[in-house]
Design a protein around this nucleic acid. Structure first.
Length: 115
DNA sequence: ACCATGACGTTTC
DNA sequence: CGAAACGCCATGG
């Protein structure tokens, strides 16, 4: 569990961004990391989402995929199919663990949040 | 300080 | 297309 005092560390910042992802949109770990000013820390994004299980906050982690639009983190959900189901529930098509029209549905925090 | 781990990304084979 | 090797960096033992 991360330090509860450091509200501004990677952990909290990642969750903040993820919670801001609009419904029906998706983004990538790298994009979030880049927005936070550490594009090489994409692994930390996944790390943060992993820890987010502990939180009561609703983290739409299903809207976060890797740069290929691949649902690499599906295994970390309650059910392996849950991630895809949630995406499809938001009108997002997923085929073979890969998001279709990824480029169109992509939500870039750097642009959306107007850095 | 050192080593291991990881929901990534890129390059190479 | 799949696997592996690196790089990268926060966290924990």
């Amino acid at each position: 569990m991360p330090k509860p005092n450091t509200n501004n560390d990677f952990f909290t910042q990642v969750l903040e961004v993820v919670k801001l992802i609009p419904k029906g949109r998706i983004t990538s770990y790298g994009a979030i990391a880049a927005y936070l000013g550490a594009k090489r820390s994409s692994r930390m994004v996944g790390w943060a989402l992993n820890k987010s299980h502990n939180l009561t906050e609703k983290i739409p982690a299903h809207r976060v995929v890797n740069r290929n639009g691949l649902l690499t983190g599906k295994a970390h959900f309650s059910s392996i199919d849950e991630m895809q189901n949630r995406l499809e529930n938001e009108n997002i098509t997923v085929v073979d663990n890969q998001v279709q029209h990824f480029q169109e549905l992509f939500w870039d925090p750097s642009k959306a949040l107007a850095l």
